[in-house]
Amino acid sequence: MRFLLASLLAIAIALGLGGWTAKLAIDGGTNFDAVELGPWTASPLAGTRAADPYAKARLAKLAQLTLGGGEGIVFHAEEDDQGRRLLLQCSYRLEGGTPAARFFTLSAHSDAGRVDLPQAGRPGWLTSNSLLRKEDNSFEIAVGPEPRSGNWLATNLTGPYRLTFALYDTPASAITGAAGLTMPSIQREGCRDDG
């Protein structure tokens, strides 16, 4: 009887703890190969055969089509420059430049990868081809629920999200470190229902 109890305990720990930690590691993302530029993170190896087993498992769970090196590279930001989680009800200002690329797109996704589309008629994504730039070729993008003049990416509802900054046809696809590359800063300007 005691032996049975001990065996059950061992099996329960093995399955429970093993399964739980596996789920945690896969869902949370391990980012062994992450390249960080300020608040932005890219995983150049994700979606390639050189990806680590966790990244491969994550890819298989998400049904994500990663960009190949000849297509571009995707940066995600979950936090602003101060390390606060990005929230849909808050307004942000993105300012700066990007690594050399033919163009880029900016969009908002939930953590599960759903595109956050605002109400009809509002800009749910931006492409650099229609971006207003300053004299020094840098740009400023407003992200948030309040309408803005200039470059504006509209968000909807409330809750955490991540910004997806995709650079296309760029030598930055081959980056292995953050050397010499810059990405825009993310400053929080205020929140709608802050309270």
């Binding site: 305990l9 093995a14 093993g18 596996a22 087993p53």
Partner: peptide
Amino acid sequence: AILIGLVGAGLVHIAVVFMI
């Protein structure tokens, strides 16, 4: 039993990650 369980958890963890 707990020690065996922990070792088993490691194996299950690896198996799950590679099976997915």
